[in-house]
């Protein structure tokens, strides 16, 4: 798919998001969360390119979300809070990445899981600081100094999420085309050769890991500032699993996949929960099973295959 076609699709998607948010006001929040998760899943996609699956990226999402919750009283502006919390998540990603980038496959996945569960316990147990399982309320934030009404705030968060989605999507696209991004699949297939080109495979993975932590952090801040409430559940392994789920559902082939996956996931969740209250997870499970069995490229791959079939005719 050409870069131009992808941009057009992204713009169409953004227009659809805005239109839906206007027509069905309660979807505005759902779509903001979907975009935030899409940003976090972009990071998962980078790791998937290197053949690695992290079952612990909720750690970075939750870390940034809590940073936003704590920071909002001192730095009450969204436009400052967002990059700051992202950088904190990236710094944590660097510290942890130095360690986990030595491992591959199941060890990489499980180490990430273990660390995120440690963080989850800390959030739960240090009640005096974190209010435990009750979580923290996030104060309302301003946007470039402007305080907004509740309605304005929700539109502003949607805009922030859209801009973050475009920014991170464009950056990841550029990154994947660079040697550093191209070498990710080399980590998956041929580390030996990479080393014998003079490139340390570990650093290639570490760079992607730090970027993925940053993206998870950005997603986390948007989640925190939109829901206005953070709980340890954000760091629980099911949240990490959800990110991987969305990555597989959307497909790792392109930067639009994560957003497609996140939108499908959140919308299915909302509607399925309304229709079959107790069985919505089963519905999602069935969808994932079908994707894995019949469309390993995810929704994005499915769309591309359809487009390719239509072109020659």
């Amino acid at each position: 798919m050409s870069r131009r076609a992808e941009l057009v699709l992204a713009l169409l998607g953004a227009a659809a998001v805005v239109l839906l948010s206007w027509a069905v006001p309660w979807l505005r929040f759902v779509l903001t969360i979907a975009l935030a998760k899409g940003v976090a899943v972009l990071g998962i996609l980078l790791l998937l390119r290197a053949g690695q699956v992290s079952f612990g990226h909720a750690l970075y999402l939750a870390l940034a979300a809590y940073m936003a919750a704590f920071g909002a009283s001192r730095i009450p502006d969204t436009l400052l809070l967002l990059p700051l919390a992202g950088i904190v998540a990236a710094a944590a990603g660097l510290a942890i990445g130095l360690f986990v980038s030595r491992y591959r496959g199941i060890f990489f996945g499980m180490l990430n899981l273990a660390l995120s569960m440690v963080f989850y316990s800390l959030l739960e147990k240090f009640y005096a600081v974190t209010r435990g399982a009750d979580g923290l309320r996030v104060p309302a934030t301003t946007f470039g100094g402007a305080a907004l009404s509740a309605e304005g705030q929700s539109w502003a968060m949607l805009c922030v999420a859209l801009i973050a989605a475009f920014g991170s999507g464009a950056f990841v696209k550029v990154y994947l085309a660079s040697p550093l991004g191209s070498a990710l699949s080399a980590v998956k297939t041929r580390e030996t050769r990479l080393e014998f080109m003079g490139v340390p495979a570990r650093l290639v993975l570490l760079a992607a890991y730090v970027l993925s932590a940053f993206l998870a952090g950005i997603g986390g801040v948007i989640v925190a500032l939109s829901t206005r409430h953070v709980t340890p559940a954000l760091a629980y392994w099911t949240t990490s699993g959800e990110l991987v789920f969305i990555a597989v559902l959307g497909g790792a082939g392109g930067v639009l996949g994560p957003f497609l996956g996140a939108a499908a996931y959140e919308l299915t969740r909302v509607y399925a929960a309304a229709l079959v209250a107790e069985a919505w997870q089963m519905a999602l499970g069935a969808v994932l099973l079908l994707v894995i069995l019949f469309a390993p490229g995810g929704l994005w791959g499915m769309g591309q295959a359809l487009a390719a079939r239509r072109r020659p005719a």
Binding site: V174, S178, P179, G181, S182, A186, T189, R190, M197, G198
Partner: peptide, 27 residues
Amino acid sequence: FGEHSVAENLALAIAAREGFWSPFRPL
């Protein structure tokens, strides 16, 4: 690198020699 084209395999080697670490320089 099986998932890459032959030219990309070569370009990765050239990039490894000339400067691998800028995310803004396309392979």
